[in-house]
């Protein structure tokens, strides 16, 4: 499969007002990510990982510079265009799962497809397939409150993957999971990455995640201090 650049950041800066001064969360970030990557932004808390993920996800705008995602400069997009970009091409996985509590598993996974305006028949087919990927075909009618943490995160993965997005952004996806569930989720993501050629971009400081990454970008105080390609060491335990 041909690898092309999906995300490119140029001189990216993000400042936040802090009292009378400004806090620089990202400073001169120049990165590019190809399709099919399995990459992590690592670093301590406050290093700018989530901020970079939010800008790439068109949830936030840079103070300076550009982030071009699938050919679109996110700083030039209005609210509607940003929403459309997220809807069509991006999948999000959150640390706290962020499932919609009043919906059951099927409805949660179905939600992005509803926004895409897909027919009920197509939605049902895709949702059931996504739930099969994450091994939750038997929990279709369950509500999030009836699931374990690991199961919730698998639902979140299914929700992110159901529309087969070009980019999946995962913010600390294993932070609320035990080791077994973390490896389970990561194995699943690796297999989906291979199967769908989606680009996975993680923000994490979890060693378990880092072991799986093929590229590790280390951020410190908003700057890229290291960007290395590596051979993943999947869990053999």
């Amino acid at each position: 499969m041909k690898n092309n650049v999906l995300i490119k950041t140029e001189n990216l800066v993000k400042n936040y007002p802090m009292g009378g001064r400004k806090f620089t969360a990202l400073n001169d970030i120049n990165l590019s990510f190809n399709s099919g990557e399995f990459t992590g932004l690592v670093g301590p808390s406050g290093s700018g990982k989530t901020t970079l993920l939010n800008i790439v996800g068109a949830l936030d705008n840079p103070s300076e510079g550009h982030a071009v995602v699938i050919g679109k400069d996110t700083s030039q997009l209005n609210h509607r265009e940003s929403a459309q970009l997220r809807n069509e091409h991006l999948g999000f996985i959150f640390q706290t799962f962020n499932l919609l509590s009043v919906y059951n598993v099927f409805e949660n996974v179905e939600f992005p497809l509803l926004l895409l305006g897909m027919s009920a028949e197509d939605r049902k087919k895709d949702v059931l397939q996504a739930l099969e990927w994450v091994g939750l075909s038997d929990k279709v009618k369950s509500r999030p409150a009836q699931l374990s943490g690991g199961e919730c995160q698998r639902v979140a993965v299914a929700r992110a993957m159901v529309k087969k997005p070009k980019i999946v952004l995962a913010d600390e996806p294993t932070a609320n999971l035990d080791a077994a569930n973390s490896y389970n989720i990561l194995d699943m993501m690796v297999s989906l990455n291979k199967e769908l050629n989606s680009t996975f971009l993680f923000a994490t400081h979890d060693e378990k995640v880092i072991k799986y990454l093929r590229r590790v970008i280390t951020l410190t105080d908003g700057k890229v201090v290291q960007d290395i390609e590596k051979t993943p060491e999947p869990n053999n335990a």
């Binding site: 509607r80 929403a83 997220r86």
Partner: peptide
């Protein structure tokens, strides 16, 4: 919003 719904 992250899933693609507009603010409106």
């Amino acid at each position: 919003m992250a899933l693609g719904m507009t603010r409106g």
